[in-house]
Amino acid sequence: MAIDQIHDLQQVYRKLLHSMSRPGTISSIEQETKQVDVDFGCADSFILSAMVLLDAEVTFHVLSKNRQDLIEKISDYTSARCASVKEADFILVLQEDEESDVLEAMAQCKIGNLIDPQQSATWIIESAVLSNEDALVLTGPGIETAAHLSTGQPFRFWQARDSRIKEYPMGIDMIFADGSSQIACLPRTVSAIPMEVK
């Protein structure tokens, strides 16, 4: 069965909003990923997160250089336009992407300005299986005391993120989507401290 553009995407949005307002909270969108009947060559939860947010009014950038097929499919499905990493509203990162490319994109993507901090890039990241193990300690709005999250990103990733969110309210927001139909979010307000160096 095909994905229902109205009701399935509404459910995914509510899970995204739940996870965004409660950083570190992992939401399952298994019911909805079951409906995806096209092979995009990436996690279904990743593609659904993109489908909820992308349309003709926004731009996206696929980090991977050899995934022209994915760019075309996302454009076909959402009417969103592909743009350079410096301009894109959404940066889509796949698990296969090189760490150096990710760090470079992190340094270049837009973070808004003090007058319009919302004109920043949102990262949608295909990640290793998400869990609440204590790889990262999260604190900030939306978290009562502290939350734990494991996304499989290397230490340098978090350093790079820190350097882009230190001028709050400017910054980047992140959505992590894994192969087990789970999503978690990290808005710019949240401090993420890695517990171990990998």
Binding site: L16, M20, P187
Partner: peptide, 13 residues
């Protein structure tokens, strides 16, 4: 979609 994007940004800031 447009309202949802604005809402997620509002939650993040």
């Amino acid at each position: 979609k447009e309202i949802r994007r604005a809402t997620l940004k509002a939650v993040a800031i």
